[in-house]
């Protein structure tokens, strides 16, 4: 890469908590290495300096929840060579997609003293519902090592190692004892995509499904397992309605159990 200009990286925020883009700042030890290989051209959380587009890599955080954002995302796409969505909001609609299961106007009338100023779309939707996306990085929040892996893979022209299989493989490779089998703890690991290195089970908790459905999810079969653990139907609905509630495999089964 010697002599060539550094690729320009931009970070864009939509409806989100900022946690995923902060994962980039959270790189700490690796942060200088990142700025050594890319030019941080647009990242308001890190610097007020903004370099104009087009951008080689855009990281997009957040979901689309307003008509304004539904239009803005197209401008981001036009200004970006590679567009990577990061986090559960951008890839599945996020926790705010819980409103998709109810009437958004009901929420607005309860939450805001002057609802007439609020313009919101009926649903919170992932970025890929609006524009073509080159790569999706899952998680709530994303794992910083996975972020470095994707950026590193792009810069070195290789395929990123972001496995779409279940959390169970990570648990077993670590030697963690299965909390579902050994304790009867409801754990979304079998239907959830790996990427966190099976964090929660290693602390004796069930998986919350932060990384969304794995690539071959049998959520109906999994819900039957939860029933065997004596979970009630509304418990099963709640288990599936977390940060990735609107991801289709989770949504379909939670809706079936709601009836």
């Amino acid at each position: 890469m010697a002599g060539k200009r550094k690729p320009k990286l931009a970070v864009w925020k939509f409806a989100s908590c900022d946690g995923c883009q902060l994962s980039l700042l959270d790189c700490e030890d690796e942060l200088l290495a990142v700025t050594g290989v890319v030019e941080i051209a647009n990242f308001p959380e890190a610097s007020r300096r903004v370099v104009g587009g087009p951008y080689d890599i855009s990281l997009v955080e957040g979901s689309i929840t307003t008509p304004h954002d539904a239009e803005r995302i197209h401008r981001v796409r036009r200004a970006s060579k590679l567009l990577i969505t990061i986090g559960a909001c951008a890839t599945a609609g996020g926790i705010q997609a819980l409103r998709n299961f109810a009437d958004v106007d009901d929420f607005i009338s309860i939450v805001y003293p002057s609802p007439q100023y609020i313009t919101a779309l009926a649903k919170s939707t992932p970025i890929s519902d609006h524009i073509p996306v080159d790569f999706e990085l899952r998680g709530c929040p994303i794992n910083k090592y996975q972020l470095l892996e994707v950026v590193g893979a792009l810069l070195n022209g290789r395929k990123p190692n972001i496995p779409p299989y279940s959390v169970c493989l990570e648990c077993k490779r670590r030697g963690t004892v299965c909390v579902l089998v050994a304790q009867g703890t409801p754990c979304l690991g079998p239907v959830t995509q790996a990427g966190c290195n099976a964090l929660c089970p290693s602390y004796n908790r069930g998986c919350y499904g932060c990384f969304g459905p794995q690539d071959s999810p049998n959520v109906a079969g999994f819900a039957a397992v939860l029933e065997q653990l004596n979970l009630r139907h509304d418990d099963i609905v709640r288990a599936l309605r977390g940060f990735n509630a609107f991801a289709e495999p989770f949504r379909k089964v939670s809706e079936a159990y709601e009836k």
Binding site: E30, A33, V34, G36, V37, L148, E149, V151, G152, A153, L155, N156, R158, N161, Y165, S166, C168, L169, K172, R173, C178, G189, P190, V191, Q214, S216, P217, N218, G221, F222, V225
Partner: peptide, 25 residues
């Protein structure tokens, strides 16, 4: 559930994959 647990705990399952990683530079 296609979770892979059976293959991980099996004492004879030996399948593996090869993964290449690079540093950022």
């Amino acid at each position: 559930l296609a979770c892979g647990n059976c293959t991980m705990v099996c004492p004879t399952c030996f399948c593996s994959t090869v993964e290449d990683t690079t540093t950022l530079t």
